[in-house]
Amino acid sequence: MKKLDQHVLDLQDGKEAALASLIDEFSEKLLFFAYKIIKNKNIAEEIISDSFIKLWERRGNFSSIECIKSFLFLVTKNACLDALKQSRSKFEHSESFLMDLKTDTQDVLTKIIYYELIDLIAKEIEKFPKKQAQIIQLSLIEGRSTEEICEELETTPSTVYFARSKAISTLKQVFKQKNISYYQVSFLLSMLWP
């Protein structure tokens, strides 16, 4: 954590290397967060770039890495909402979905925790066999249906179901070793694979 604290100080001093380190630290999490809201990778990437520009412009205002993280997620969420409002015809989200996104700070922190857990899961998925990792990537990260996964990977629904089950079992064991309770992992997985 001391390394991240040093990045805060370096950022305040206007050192671009600190910004680059923060981009490395948070860009994937923010991209996943934005993609889940707007379902468009190119727009999500633009939003993330703009979020880091805003961070750089306000670099003197941050005293901790937690403040930076909260700022980045909040700016990203707001930019995603703006993009959805401007493109309602392209994105068919219901009013209730948009209302769910307009939440207080506590809910934003909950979402940050959620996406950090997703990041931990993604790192474990990288260790899976190639086919299993592809299935989990398409299902978890991209939110594709079983039929879409079968079509893209030219496989059967039973293969997709088996890969998901095996992944869940493996993840439970990994997180048990990391002292994350079975119930926390189960709750997260139930949100991902209803």
Results as ranks from 00 to 15, higher is better:
81 L>H: 06
81 L>Q: 11
82 D>H: 12
82 D>M: 08
82 D>K: 08
82 D>Y: 09
83 A>R: 09
84 L>K: 10
84 L>S: 08
84 L>P: 05
85 K>H: 10
85 K>P: 03
86 Q>M: 08
86 Q>K: 11
87 S>D: 09
87 S>H: 11
87 S>E: 10
87 S>F: 08
88 R>S: 12
90 K>W: 11
91 F>Q: 07
92 E>H: 11
92 E>N: 11
92 E>C: 08
93 H>F: 15
93 H>Y: 13
94 S>R: 14
94 S>T: 15
94 S>I: 03
95 E>I: 04
95 E>W: 06
96 S>N: 10
97 F>P: 04
97 F>V: 06
98 L>S: 02
98 L>T: 02
98 L>N: 04
98 L>V: 04
99 M>T: 07
99 M>L: 10
99 M>I: 09
100 D>E: 14
100 D>F: 04
100 D>P: 02
102 K>C: 14
102 K>H: 09
102 K>R: 12
103 T>P: 05
103 T>E: 15
103 T>F: 04
104 D>P: 05
104 D>C: 07
105 T>H: 13
105 T>L: 11
105 T>K: 13
105 T>M: 13
105 T>A: 15
105 T>E: 15
106 Q>L: 11
106 Q>N: 13
107 D>F: 07
107 D>W: 06
107 D>H: 15
107 D>A: 15
107 D>L: 13
107 D>V: 01
108 V>R: 02
108 V>Q: 13
108 V>D: 08
108 V>G: 12
109 L>F: 15
109 L>T: 03
109 L>S: 07
110 T>V: 12
111 K>S: 10
112 I>D: 07
114 Y>K: 02
116 E>S: 09
116 E>Q: 14
117 L>A: 05
120 L>Q: 13
120 L>S: 09
120 L>N: 05
122 A>E: 03
122 A>V: 01
124 E>G: 02
124 E>Y: 07
125 I>S: 03
125 I>N: 01
126 E>G: 10
127 K>R: 14
127 K>N: 13
128 F>S: 05
129 P>D: 15
129 P>C: 10
130 K>F: 04
131 K>Q: 13
131 K>H: 11
132 Q>T: 08
132 Q>M: 10
134 Q>T: 07
135 I>E: 02
135 I>Y: 00
136 I>F: 00
137 Q>F: 12
138 L>D: 01
138 L>N: 02
139 S>K: 01
139 S>R: 01
139 S>L: 14
140 L>K: 03
141 I>T: 02
141 I>Q: 08
141 I>G: 01
143 G>V: 00
143 G>N: 04
143 G>Q: 13
143 G>W: 03
143 G>S: 05
144 R>H: 08
144 R>F: 08
144 R>K: 15
146 T>D: 09
146 T>E: 15
148 E>F: 04
149 I>Y: 07
